[in-house]
Amino acid sequence: MNYEAIVIGVSSGGLNALKFLFSYLPENFRIPVIIVQHINRHSDSNWIKILNNLNSIHIKEADEKETIEPGKVYIAPPNYHLMIENDRTFSLTIDELVNFARPSIDVLFESAAEVYNNKLIGIVLTGSNSDGTKGLKRIKNHGGLTIAQDPATAESPQMPASAIASIQVDHILSLGGIKDLLIKIAGDID
């Protein structure tokens, strides 16, 4: 399967989880990765710099109307929802909070599912709420690949546990397992 995008939803404990993943993803990792990390609305982008220093994959905040490109990692800006258009560009909105969050994981996942269908990988990582469950379900219904972090290995187990409770996810893995699977999938494409 030629996957065209990976969406990741992550909340509390997210910085450590993302740091781990991006320390190990190879430089030639081509599938674009799009991330919603729940974050304080006034926070600056320093934490993205931390991730960027881990390796040479380019990690940036998603800009309005920006075209999604292979080999890049995009992060939803604080206080905006992030959505994907049919032409593979980003849209931002200031719509109401969803699951008490803006950006919301469900909003990103649902719009990504509509665009990428079965060429999408959705991943729910550590977090202490249930954002992402509805979105992962939509990805599953559109034929995408669904992954949840093994709650036993998550800093905050509730978010992946919520997803697992309501969806037959394809893989339940530790961060190490997720990293290995992504590398394998990306390698199969080449």
Binding site: E85, T93, V107, E114
Partner: peptide, 8 residues
């Protein structure tokens, strides 16, 4: 308008 927004 942005399609993704309208659809949602």
């Amino acid at each position: 308008y942005s399609q993704a927004h309208i659809r949602r």
